[in-house]
Simulated assay, not measured.
Amino acid sequence: MNPPATCVCIPTYEERESLPRTLDGVLRAVPDAHVLVIDDNSPDGTGELADRLAAEDPRVHVLHRPGKAGLGPAYIAGFRWALAQGFDVVAQMDADGSHRPEDLPRLLAGLARADAVLGSRWVPGGAVADWPRSRELLSRGANRYVRAALRLPVGDATGGFRAFRRHTLERLDLDAVQSQGYCFQIDMARQVWSRGLRLVEVPILFVNREFGASKMSSRIIREALVRVTAWSLSSRRPAPAVRPASTGGERLVHRVAA
């Protein structure tokens, strides 16, 4: 049998309460998609719950990892699994309800004119709901620093709601991605950009999680600051250009020839 076109990768660590709702929403929004739950041996039984849900629906798969090793390694493992299974499109999203499944079809539709699509909170039409002001300021400030330091012309380089064409992931050096926290999102975006691939930003509504606790920490913030600063000192690229797309706040990013 030929595999279905789309795999949605969802990393989990102690997301037992939110996972069933997220899976149900994804499979309702994109019925032809498959979902890969990547669990880092959650002590609350998220992995065991995912196994039961997978037994009930052939579109759900589970990748068990031995322990908590960070967001980046979990996604890389998921991407490799999806590529090995022959999926044409690989998407990623959080399990905690922050990323709305109803926005997923628009992200996937964006791949018709791009190699990678970023769900963006910080382009026209994008927004956050029920987020503490401190988190919003942190996210906006981090993205401003990324744009200035890396000359990466995207509004939301740290967001985790994304979709990639198969050939995009195959062209990236996944072995070189060492970032563990949300810096992984910046790392992937800069790799796509540096290879001259086309990026589209699609506005999304980001909703603060209802269940569980945020994984954000000072260590994760320090990792991003150190890595972005190091990349900025080692990179030399021509100035980017951004061409607004014609609809709904969506933005097409393309490179200027050297």
Rank of each mutant, 00 (worst) to 15 (best):
L118W: 11
G47H: 00
R209E: 01
R251P: 08
R171V: 01
A157W: 01
R237N: 10
Y182G: 00
R59T: 05
E136K: 13
P4H: 14
D156N: 09
R16T: 08
R16I: 14
A148K: 15
F79E: 01
L197N: 07
R171L: 09
I186P: 05
I221W: 00
D156W: 03
Q180A: 10
Q92K: 14
R80V: 10
A116Q: 11
K68N: 08
L71M: 14
V253T: 12
W81F: 13
S218W: 08
F161I: 04
I204S: 03
R195S: 05
A224D: 01
D187M: 10
L53G: 02
Y145A: 15
R198N: 08
D96Q: 03
R106E: 09
R227M: 07
E56I: 01
E48K: 13
E250W: 11
D187K: 09
S194C: 13
S235F: 03
T46C: 09
V62A: 01
G141H: 10
A224C: 15
G181T: 07
I10R: 00
P124I: 07
M93C: 07
G141E: 14
D51V: 09
T168L: 06
R209D: 00
T46N: 07
S217K: 10
A91L: 03
S139I: 07
L36P: 00
S139C: 15
E48F: 09
C183E: 04
R151F: 07
G125H: 09
R251T: 11
R209F: 01
L63E: 01
C9L: 15
R52A: 14
H64A: 13
H254Q: 14
A149K: 15
A29M: 09
A148H: 15
A157F: 02
K215I: 00
G97D: 06
R255W: 11
P132H: 06
Q178H: 13
R195W: 07
F87E: 04
A55P: 00
V26A: 04
V90I: 15
D115N: 14
R133A: 15
G78W: 02
A230T: 12
M93I: 04
Y75K: 10
A95N: 05
Q191H: 14
L174I: 04
G212T: 00
W122P: 05
Q178L: 14
P20R: 11
R16V: 11
V26M: 02
V117F: 07
R121I: 04
R151Y: 05
G126I: 04
F211P: 06
A241Y: 05
E210V: 04
H167N: 08
L174G: 05
D103R: 13
T158M: 12
A29Q: 12
D173M: 04
G248K: 12
I186M: 08
A142Y: 11
T22M: 15
A54I: 00
E56W: 01
Y13T: 00
R198D: 13
R100D: 12
H167Y: 05
V30P: 05
C9V: 15
A230F: 07
R190M: 13
Q185T: 11
P3Q: 09
A257T: 08
D175E: 13
I38L: 05
A95M: 07
V256Y: 12
A149S: 15
L197W: 02
L169Y: 02
R151E: 13
P203I: 03
S120Q: 10
D51I: 04
